[in-house]
């Protein structure tokens, strides 16, 4: 009986499903346009922008990769270094700080919580002028490690907030047992807390990692480091109407993130929305 009802429901939903698929196809058109046009010469793009690329050509991508003025691998290297070290660094310092704040119920820890949270209300654009001035004075412009530190500082508020909430929800019994066994705070943190907060680490890593990878203004203004996002912006400049080149750059900039997304859709969606709601 239940089965029959379900089948009826299914049939009733068929028009809805068709509508949704059409909607999704329409929605995905800009992505389709990007993918097919990477493999067409600019002339063909201008005359027939939505036709399939037959025969597909690789000229756009090879010309971008071989352009002596543009070093795509250098851009990738910078972006990877920033994302990897920035996110890891931020996770380490923030989870440590959050552990203290979550476990110590003192006036100081209460103050520190508010102090770290303050960064969440700040539009980041406010710090650019002082930071650029600081970087110029200290001759740090173009220095990758200092730029990574800036990225770490920018994500500390969010990460502390997330970890504090998560650690606060963990029962203390395991820790208390470990203390009786004579374990140090650091051992407890590494061996007990960090494994327990893995879901939180996934969320934070995706949220701050993606924002670091995609950030445009920070690497452009502070440090003037060519990440992939800044790199394609400056590289496209002279070719803005050469659509083949534009699409090739767009593909290069989005491919790593898209591949990661395809393999971990659920984590990406959960991480970005959970992060947004709480942060």
């Amino acid at each position: 009986m239940a089965n029959v009802v379900n089948k009826k429901e299914e049939k009733k939903n068929l028009p809805l499903k068709i509508l949704l698929v059409l909607l999704a196809c329409f929605f995905a058109l800009p992505l389709y346009i990007t993918i097919i046009n990477v493999f067409k010469p600019t002339k063909v793009i201008s005359s027939s922008p939505i036709s399939l690329p037959f025969p597909p050509i690789m000229d756009n991508i090879t010309s971008v990769l071989n352009d002596p003025n543009v070093n795509v691998f250098e851009m990738y290297k910078n972006s990877i270094m920033i994302t990897l070290f920035g996110a890891t660094g931020c996770i380490i310092v923030s989870s440590l700080a959050a552990y203290y704040i979550a476990r110590m119920k003192t006036k100081l820890s209460g103050f520190l919580y508010v102090y770290f949270l303050f960064g969440l209300m700040v539009p980041y654009v406010i710090v650019y002028v002082p930071l650029v001035t600081m970087f110029n004075k200290l001759h740090l412009t173009g220095n990758l490690p200092s730029l990574i530190m800036v990225f770490v500082s920018g994500s500390i508020s969010f990460s502390v907030f997330m970890y504090q909430g998560f650690i606060g929800g963990i029962s203390r019994e395991l820790e208390e047992a470990a203390i009786i066994d004579g374990a140090s705070s650091l051992t407890i943190f590494v061996k007990i807390i960090m494994p327990l907060v893995k879901p939180c680490t996934t969320t934070v890593a995706i949220f701050i990692g993606l924002s670091m990878w995609n950030d445009f203004l920070t690497p452009l203004l502070i440090g003037q480091v060519k990440t992939i996002t800044v790199g394609i912006y400056t590289a496209i400049g002279p070719y803005a109407s050469d659509w083949g080149t534009v699409f090739a750059y767009v593909l290069l900039a989005t491919l790593p993130v898209t591949i990661a997304y395809i393999f971990a859709q659920k984590q990406f969606i959960a991480g970005l929305t959970a992060g947004a709601i709480k942060g």
Partner: peptide, 25 residues
């Protein structure tokens, strides 16, 4: 799940890249 993933994809791509796609359109 499949449809959700399609609609969500633009949100993970860099805004600069998305703007160039739309500039071409």
């Amino acid at each position: 799940n499949a449809l959700r993933s399609i609609f969500f994809l633009p949100y993970v791509i860099s805004t600069v890249a998305i703007s160039f796609i739309w500039l071409s359109i």
